[in-house]
Amino acid sequence: MECSFALTGKDYVIIAADTTAARSIVKMKVDEDKIKTLSPHLLMAYSGESGDTIQFAEFIERNIRLYHIRNLYPLRPQSAASWIRRSLAESLRSRSPYTVNLLIGGFDTADESPHLYWVDYLGTMASVPFAAHGYGSYFALGLLDRYHNPDGSLEEGLDVLRRAINETAQRLVVAPGNYIVKVVDKDGTREIKL
């Protein structure tokens, strides 16, 4: 089943999401990238109802891009997260709500600080040091609570992420096999091999 994890460090945010696209009990695809780069310093991992996820993520992606083009500068992570949350909250009370859960990680180049937001399909938003969605969260959150260091180096952050992924792989019956890991820091976003 779908799992995504994220954590902040001294000057970066790491986001990891599994790569399976499943329908019922069948794996349809095992290399799906479920982390979008919304702007040069903003990442968004999405999970949930399969049709909704892509539709919603692309809607967000295009609108964040439009803002960047119109204003010549991108939305800051706080503002982007706030707008995305609002889109979900408005969708919740519409005729057909999006069932999409998000982890939004960004690096604010104005004050050089990392930001991570946990957002669920209801439009609940929390600014957190680490976060997870899906069944993996039941295994990872306790671990992250114990081992996460908000001032840690990137290598330290990746070690904690490995712990979370390994624990999930060991204990979760329906654990995903593969993850895509992306990092956002002052140099922008990039994919990392764990």
């Binding site: 946990w118 669920d120 609940t124 929390a126 600014s127 957190v128 976060a131 969260s137 039941y138 959150l141």
Partner: peptide, 13 residues
């Protein structure tokens, strides 16, 4: 506290 059911998501809400 901010939870999602019995699971605690954030302690700064």
């Amino acid at each position: 506290r901010l939870g999602a059911g019995a699971m605690t998501v954030a302690m700064n809400f």
